[in-house]
Every structure is written in structure tokens, then in C-alpha cells.
């Protein structure tokens, strides 16, 4: 499991200190740490596309930024990705929870649980599951963002964070 303090310290070390999002229980401890942090700014967005907008604005103002959302809200950022971030080349680091993984979840999460990866693939968003070796995954994501200037997704399964 990943200690949330290590996770945020690593991101802050890479100058990623501006985040927005819509909560997911998978991120509970991650968000608690961010909300109480003096280093990380976390904007509680009203919907996932607003989180993308706010974090994209931060990027335009010269910051490195990201979002944390539940995969059920992935649909809300499809238009934001296709008609904004991907064509204006606005890289935002996206942490997307994976409710419905392997079909073991509440009914409302089962379809998106099956479709999360294929949706991201269909949109040509580079993605991988976040692992306990989170530093390697973050470096991979940040590397692509710096090279291609597009959003990259890290998918977060239940139980990864302490």
C-alpha cells in the first residue's frame, strides 16, 4: 500500500501542487491529506469537467496540475478532452479511480468498471494502473506529459492507498 504522505511529497517534489477533483471513496485518505496540506492546493470542483477546466487554467498560468475523479465521472470530461485538452495540448495529470473493477461493486459501477480502460484507449489517452511502485508510474506519466503535452491517466484500484 502507498502512504498518502509519500504520494503527495513525491508529486510536490515534481512541482505538481495544484489539483482539483470530485471525490471517490477510493481517494478518501488521499483527499484528506491534500485538503489538510499546506503545500497542495485542492479545489473541490462541482463536476469533473469543471475540475479539468480549473486545472487546465492552472497550467495556462504556468503551474503543473492534476485532477482526481471517480471513473463514473469519466463521461463528463470526454468533450473537455476532445475539444480542449487534446487539441490545445494542455497536459493535466489525471487520477481516475476504478470502481467496478472485475465486476465486484455496486450495480451503478459495473458498466463503467468494464469500460473505463477502453474509453481511455478510444480517446488515445495514455493510461496505466497506478501500482505500489508509484514513483515509476508517476515518472512515466509526467514523461509523456512533458513530451506530448497531453493529459495522462493513472487508474487507481480500491485498497492501493493506506
Amino acid at each position: 500500500m502507498i502512504r498518502v504522505k509519500d504520494f503527495w511529497d513525491y508529486l510536490a517534489g515534481k512541482n505538481f501542487i495544484f489539483f482539483s477533483g470530485v471525490p471517490c471513496s477510493i481517494f478518501k485518505t488521499v483527499l484528506d491529506e491534500a485538503i489538510n496540506s499546506e503545500i497542495i492546493t485542492y479545489v473541490p470542483a462541482v463536476r469533473e469537467d469543471v475540475a479539468m477546466g480549473v486545472s487546465s487554467g492552472a497550467y495556462l498560468a504556468g503551474k503543473k496540475s492534476g485532477i482526481l475523479i471517480q471513473n463514473s465521472g469519466l463521461g463528463h470530461i470526454v468533450n473537455t478532452l476532445t475539444s480542449f485538452n487534446l487539441i490545445y495540448k494542455i497536459p493535466v495529470l489525471m487520477f481516475i479511480s476504478w470502481r467496478g473493477y472485475m465486476g465486484k461493486d455496486a450495480p451503478e459501477h459495473k458498466i463503467m468498471g468494464r469500460k473505463t480502460i477502453s474509453l481511455l484507449s478510444g480517446l488515445d489517452i495514455p493510461h496505466r494502473a497506478l501500482s505500489v511502485d508509484f514513483d515509476k508510474d508517476l515518472n512515466w506519466a509526467i514523461g509523456i506529459m512533458e513530451k506530448k503535452h497531453i493529459p495522462v491517466a493513472l487508474i487507481v484500484k480500491e485498497g492501493l492507498f493506506k
Partner: peptide
């Protein structure tokens, strides 16, 4: 000037993100 050519509804949140960081 910064123009949105698509992504209707996004301009206010973009503005907020810029305003918070500049």
C-alpha cells in the same frame, strides 16, 4: 486573448484556474 473554439461551458472554470494562479 484566448479563444475557446469548442468545449462550451468551460471558459469560467478555466478563468478560475488562471485567476487562482496569477
Amino acid at each position: 486573448n484566448f479563444y475557446l473554439i469548442g468545449s462550451m461551458g468551460l471558459v469560467s472554470s478555466l478563468g478560475l484556474g488562471i485567476a487562482m494562479n496569477s
